[in-house]
Design a protein around this nucleic acid. Structure first.
Lengths: 146, 146
DNA sequence: ACTTTATAGTTTCATTTGCAACTAATTGCA
DNA sequence: TGCAATTAGTTGCAAATGAAACTATAAAGT
């Protein structure tokens, strides 16, 4: 007489995705959290600044790229600038905008953390065969287009 | 002369997983947040209690199943009990443990939210063909075994 | 030019979180 | 037994977060 129909969590995609994503992010975060006193949000901002180096991103653009909200980005940047890891200038034609870039010390951290992150990714992907990796990429393209 | 090697975020698995998972969870959360004044953590706890109905789960077991930490679970439970959505009893043989179950009003909410969550999942999976769905399941089994 | 409207980013405040310390009950072991 | 070590769950405090209000600048409309 089955009045309720609970989610079979172990087969429910949003639940499984969330668990996987949390585990993966946490395992990467463990690598840099204490060692560099770097929060996950700070690392994400740094990764975006590294990726789009030379483009002089504004805070808003960082927020778009990271899919974090602008307040979070503003605060992460404040800490990063304070710690001397990010250089912040004012845009020439628009004094509201900042022009952001990693500093030398930011790059030094980046050059240690990025390979660690990549190693974690490789460790994960090693568990899949090449067909699965290809399909996963296609799936992500379909489900979370950039 | 390539001194730095930034992550290609748009192809970096942990980044893409995190974005996908956040989008999916947020889109489900939107359905119940205001309507029931239910936080995501509260809903997760309810979903687990529903799924393992009749087993009289303790808070610790809920924490394990949700992969949330015990503090988060303790507080979510406090709110749920307060709101009359979860019934909490004391275990017969071990007075430290609580024995948890959804109340009638908790089930009523569950019976509305669970179908909404399932609908969101279907909407997502609809974008994949059946091979992709099968592969995704296999991938999740490999990467985030339960 | 002048006034409204929009945008970039920061700050404020209430809420949520995360860690460590704590209480209470149970178990292990001398 | 009896006392140390574990375990279940809660609480206190500092830090992180999110929504809305705010400041400063720029763009658009008249």
């Amino acid at each position: 007489m089955q009045r309720h129909d609970p989610l079979q969590l172990e087969h429910f995609l949003p639940y499984r995705l969330s668990i996987l994503s949390n585990r993966v992010s946490a395992s990467i975060a463990r690598e840099y959290q204490q060692q560099f006193e770097l929060s996950m949000t700070e690392w994400r901002v740094m990764a975006v600044l590294a990726r789009f180096d030379g483009e002089g991103l504004s805070a808003r653009e960082v927020a778009q790229r990271t899919e974090m909200d602008k307040v979070q980005v503003s605060r992460a940047l404040a800490r990063l600038v304070e710690a001397g890891r990010v250089q912040r200038d004012v845009h020439g034609n628009d004094k509201r905008r900042s022009v952001l870039a990693l500093s030398a010390s930011g790059w030094a951290i980046h050059d240690i953390v990025a390979p660690l992150a990549r190693a974690q990714e490789r460790a994960l992907l090693r568990r899949l065969d090449s067909t699965e990796v290809a399909t996963l990429t296609r799936i992500l393209d379909k489900l979370a287009p950039v």
